[in-house]
Nucleic acid binder design. Structure first.
Length: 695
DNA sequence: TTTAGGG
DNA sequence: CCCTAAA
């Protein structure tokens, strides 16, 4: 490789619409997941789950748009809010890459409704009941959720806007990798354009935007209320308490970008606009709803590690001039589409929530997202969110009546500085991608919102707006919000698993890792004495790029060794002190293999081999029938057999995916029976001659 | 490494 | 497909 001159780009801040992305890379460790419990994750959990719904709903498409009434098992049905018309008339997907059976075999009678249970934290569950054939699924669900939340919270202070971005709805057929269309431009909708541009593998993503520092006052104590999130959504919803002031700036309307994707995701022409929404408070686990062709919620796509990122560092506030380091790291990523059950997806999201939680907040409740401690940037810091109070009339707010509200508008947040190093021979497209990756990496650690009042950081999250003076009109001019990265709080048990590339960070902040969680209060006044973590780039070997089997778009993929990216967000000392460590991830575990459904021919070969060799000799089966299929491991074959047996035992209506000939399934059953019998005999008495299934 | 199973 | 305990 010839040396290339590098160009360094400094970003004093990337302006993004005032919205946050919550889905984060999933973590598979159950141990980590266990740490995510209860209401801390209320918001994200809910949203993530909703997102799962949106995804899952795609296969519940049905031709009939009519709404069904009187669904079973519900106690509190009610009409959901009316949707805007434009949401009801979406073009169908131009291409429906999903299994064509998915629509057919899931259409239920009009009386059958799909009962969804939306988990909102650990204590609240919203049951969403909507008919299966009530039209554009994701949209309905979206409004179901909104409606449910509104009812559940008994207040409209909290608004949640959920957008679903089906980045790509492509299901790879067996043996054929599906190339996706080129990534959409990342423009016009802030971060919504995050795309998996590296290799254009099939993937799908969720953009859960939401929103609204509406009802902040309430959110302060919204332990049991639906999440109040942050949004710049200037579309239609106006919170009751906080007047949302429609932006007159040039900030892109996030809806626009999102809705388009939603269009693509709606898999039918249904024009149904009404639906049922049922809300209960049962705190039970979501049940598995048989579904199909549901992509795993790889919102994670967005959080995919940038292979080019060699360095990913954070520095602290300018005023402290302290440097801290993060490490580049792989981000759990998957583009696999699965047919997992709702429960599975739910679990997956729980994993997401782990990171979301750990990364985005270190204590407190999700509803307090809007009041999370921020970084100590100065008021004039360009990274500070622009607060527009021109249109607000805070004079009323300061009239200290108990119900006065504070009106403010967040025009945008500022993303902290990003430094990007890229060869000058790189294309603009790769530059875009690099920037995107930088932002992705930046966001990957989780987000926090900082509140600055007159240049001073408002640390006490428990104070009311009035107490802090935020309700005073004369101070609103100096009220700012910062979008700041948070680091994942590494659970103590996991810190020992850190790979070599974590060493530098470990060394720097190891002492902090021992701070017991209980001591990690939001108010981290004493953290100014935090040891400095000097940013160090990690060896390339520790960050082997993620290569995709179908790296179709590796246009100008600058090799990792030639493109370094340094993100230098002004990480607050607090954040580092509180959540100093990232969850270690072994690079080899980062990328999930692409899913490659077995073809009928493969199934045939597998069945034949198993018939011959039995069910306990998968290596032999592999050698015998799949020796040349590099991507099929004996574990795969074993798994496939397992699923085949399962498939053969369920009713044909329940089967999904490419249908396997019944004849093969019959053979599967007989072979399974035979060999399990043999195995039983083997246990009974010492092995004799090698049996063989006669067929 | 391979099996066997749960996830 | 992933993850792992066992073998």
């Amino acid at each position: 490789m010839m040396l290339q001159k590098r160009l360094d780009y400094g970003f004093s801040g990337c302006q993004v619409p005032a919205m946050l992305y919550f889905p984060k890379s999933a973590k598979r460790k159950r141990s980590a997941r266990r740490k995510v419990e209860n209401k801390q994750l209320c918001a994200i959990d809910l949203l993530a789950t909703v997102a799962g719904e949106l995804l899952s709903e795609r296969e519940n498409c049905a031709p009939s748009p009519q709404c069904i009434d009187g669904a079973s098992g519900t106690t509190n049905t009610s009409k959901a809010s009316v949707k805007p018309d434009h949401l009801c008339q979406k073009e169908p997907l131009k291409t429906e890459p999903f299994d064509q059976h998915s629509c057919n075999d899931t259409v239920l009678g009009p009386e059958v409704a799909t009962k969804r249970q939306i988990s909102c934290g650990s204590t609240e569950h919203l049951h969403i009941l909507r008919p299966k054939d009530s039209g554009p699924a994701s949209l309905l669900v979206k409004y179901d959720i909104l409606d449910a939340i509104a009812r559940e919270s008994k207040t409209l202070n909290n608004r949640v806007d959920i957008s679903y971005s089906a980045a790509y709805a492509v299901a790879g057929r067996c043996g054929t990798e599906t190339n996706l269309p080129a990534s959409p431009e990342v423009e016009g909708d802030g971060l919504t354009g995050f795309q998996e541009s590296e290799n254009q593998m099939p993937g799908n993503g969720l953009d859960i935007n939401a929103v609204g520092i509406y009802g902040m006052e309430d959110s302060m104590d919204l332990d049991t209320k639906p999440p109040a999130l942050v949004s710049s959504d200037s579309s239609t919803e106006v919170p009751v308490c906080w007047n949302y002031l429609p932006s007159n700036s040039s900030l892109p309307k996030q809806e626009s970008g999102m809705e388009h994707v939603v269009d693509r995701d709606d898999d039918d022409n249904s024009s149904g606009c009404t639906h049922l929404s049922t809300i209960t408070n049962k705190a039970c686990r979501p049940r598995c709803i048989g579904n199909h062709r549901v992509r795993k919620l790889s919102t994670l796509k967005y959080w995919r590690a940038a292979p080019n990122i060699l360095k990913y560092s954070h520095i602290s506030d300018y005023d402290t001039e302290k440097k801290r380091s993060l490490h580049g790291k792989k981000i759990y990523y998957t583009r696999q589409r699965t047919q997992r059950s709702y429960c599975k997806r739910r679990k997956l999201f729980e994993r997401c929530l782990v990171s979301a939680s750990n990364g985005g907040m270190y204590s407190g409740d999700i509803p307090n997202l809007c009041e999370m401690g921020g970084i100590g940037t100065e008021a004039h810091d360009p990274r500070t969110a622009v607060l527009d109070t021109n249109d607000a009339s805070p004079s009323q707010a300061e009239q200290s009546s108990s119900y006065n509200s504070v009106k403010l508008r967040i025009k945008s947040f500022m993303v902290p500085e990003l430094f990007i190093e890229i060869p000058e021979t790189a294309t603009v497209g790769s530059l875009k991608q690099t920037v995107m990756e930088a932002v992705t990496a930046f966001l990957q650690g989780g987000m926090s919102i900082g509140v600055l009042l007159q240049g001073k950081k408002v640390r006490d999250d428990n104070k009311t707006l009035r107490q802090t003076g935020i309700s005073c009109s004369d101070k609103l001019d100096n009220l700012g919000f910062t979008l700041e990265p948070s680091l994942t709080q590494t659970p103590p048990p996991l810190t020992s698993l850190r790979g070599p590339h974590f060493l530098c960070l470990d060394d720097a902040v190891e002492p902090l890792a021992r701070i017991p969680p209980g001591a990690l209060s939001i108010d981290q006044e004493a953290t100014d004495s935090t040891p400095q973590a000097v940013l160090t780039s990690s060896p390339v070997s520790d960050h082997e790029p993620i290569h995709s089997p179908t790296d179709a778009s590796s246009l100008d993929q600058t090799p990792a060794d030639k493109l370094a990216l340094v993100a230098l967000p002004p990480v607050s000392i607090e954040a580092l002190a509180v959540v100093p460590l990232r969850k270690p991830r072994h690079p080899e575990h980062v990328q999930r293999r692409i899913r490659r459904p077995f073809s009928v021919a493969e199934v045939e070969a597998l069945v034949q081999a198993v018939e011959k060799l039995g069910t306990g000799r998968w290596r032999d089966v592999k050698l015998r029938a799949f020796d040349s299929a590099k991507h099929r491991t004996y574990v795969d074959l074993k798994d496939k057999w397992k699923t085949l047996v399962h498939t053969a035992r369920i009713s044909p209506q329940q089967r999904r995916g490419e249908p396997v000939p019944q004849e093969l399934l019959d053979r599967v059953l007989s072979a399974q029976a035979f060999w399990s019998q043999q195995q039983a005999k083997l246990h009974a008495k010492p092995p004799a001659a090698e049996p063989c299934l006669l067929l």
